[in-house]
Amino acid sequence: MKIWQRSLILLLLPSSALLTTALHQPQDPRPAPYHFTKIDASGGPLPIWSGPWSCVCDHRSGLLWEVKTDSENIHDGLWTYSWYDNSWADVPDNDQFTAQPAAHRGAPTTIGTPNNGDCYFEEERCDTADLIRRTREEKLCGVQDWRLPTAAELQTLIYTDAKAGQPTIDTAFFPKTKRGDYWTSEQDESLQTVYNYLKSGAVAVSFVDGQPITIPHRNAAFVRLVSDNSKSCH
């Protein structure tokens, strides 16, 4: 190889490398696929780094979850609720055309303690039935069948790799979650220790340690509603 050829190569190689690097814009980070999808208030999916969002679809379980806010609306994460179910209150026991299960006939038409939590959106204080009713009326994320989750359903959200001091949930998808107890639909469970005299209560899942705990209906705990029949998630 002649000198001029080597010179040309030596000039061109580093020059082109420098020019290419200078002209090349590094790509911005991109999100990785994940099993949660953000859903907006009308039920439409959002890109993973977009917002604001009102619900989260978990593609592992097919469940659509309510997302808490700090906007002082009915979904504010600070509000607490006593456990209360009045869903059978308007259904006569002898009505053969309702969906009331035979096992329930003759049972009390309301269960739990009404209006013993703290919120701004009710004239009286709040209970779980209030949030369910209001969320159904609102058709949050296009869904009407909002309900309390079972303990097993709620525990699918437990995230053991939470950052220091944060609740055991993926706060990037579920912000405004408190390190506290969240009600489930499971009730008529025996109360233990200091609550023993109250006989039975409902199950809540702690987002401190992820474990279920039975507490009196009258207690003020947090709530995250769920739907298992949403279009957004199926």
Partner: peptide
């Protein structure tokens, strides 16, 4: 920290 897909800033 581990990757947290929902967080735009790592």
């Amino acid at each position: 920290d581990q990757m947290r897909p929902g967080e735009r800033r790592y």
